[in-house]
Design a protein around this nucleic acid. Structure first.
Lengths: 148, 148
DNA sequence: GAAGATTGACACATCAATCTTT
DNA sequence: AAAGATTGATGTGTCAATCTTC
């Protein structure tokens, strides 16, 4: 057996540190814009969007967890808050009595739409400030292996 | 004035969602490796490394905050734990009596080295599983505008 | 016994307020 | 007044244990 596994070459370290910093920077700028507009944070948006995307039939919590890389208990607590805020409804699942179906309330849809009106432009601005459109497209292409 | 700012084009959305997911995935894999080895989390590593990198003179907290994109209170609380664990020492700053200088204890240096022996290979593995070396280099190049 | 989901206890993050020195 | 740093109160995330249904 190999006693000391190889440390990463400098290019791998550079790619990782920049990736982490880029994600943190963009997220911070979007969060700041949402907060400045009196809107809920990105984590709420992500869940609202997954539910809306799923259509009128709603979506199962574990499907949301898989797409958003959240642990079960994490989503459970997040949905608690969304329900308390009147944005999401929990209903028993007809097919599987262990499970639930999440749906948006009208307020949930409205909030998601208002959030996107801030989120979208803030994201565009943050990206455009650093990357040309061509580089943005190249970035999306390189990161395809990480897509859901 | 423009009443409705433009929503981002699909390529920008794709770049952002993949970037966020890539960062979350890589971080989760590294954290899991550290935890499996009984080592402290990435956030601790980052601070230990910034201090060690700074050399024997130590480093001021606000310099660490700037590099790691942490708020003042966030680093303050994190350093509390590192000091409690015996890995970091706080000393008054000779130049500026408002400030501090952070240094590593010998245990801090040893822990950082042991963590890197797990972190580095876990990172290499996680990257290599998805990206060719050429694509990793291209990625680092594209993300240069986000570097500190 | 495994999958879907929740909960109590605890760790960590965040906000606003504070203190000291510049 | 601003910069460096910390703190009390509170909100959010995490772990292990739990409950129900498959």
């Amino acid at each position: 057996m190999n006693p000391t596994p190889p440390p990463p070459p400098p290019q791998v370290i550079a790619a990782w540190t920049r990736l982490a910093r880029a994600a943190a920077t963009l997220q911070a700028e979007v969060e700041a814009a949402l907060k400045a507009a009196g809107l809920p944070p990105l984590a709420w948006y992500d869940v609202l969007w997954e539910i809306e995307r799923a259509g009128p039939g709603g979506i199962r919590p574990h499907a949301v967890e898989a797409r958003l890389l959240l642990p079960q208990y994490g989503l459970s607590r997040l949905v608690d808050r969304l329900v308390a805020a009147g944005l999401v409804a929990r209903a028993p699942c007809p097919d599987d009595r262990r499970g639930l179906v999440l749906t948006l309330t009208p307020e949930g849809e409205a909030t998601r739409a208002r959030a996107w009106a801030v989120y979208g432009p803030a994201l565009s601005a943050a990206m455009d400030r650093r990357l040309s459109r061509a580089d943005t497209i190249a970035l999306a292409r390189l990161l395809a292996p990480f897509a859901p």
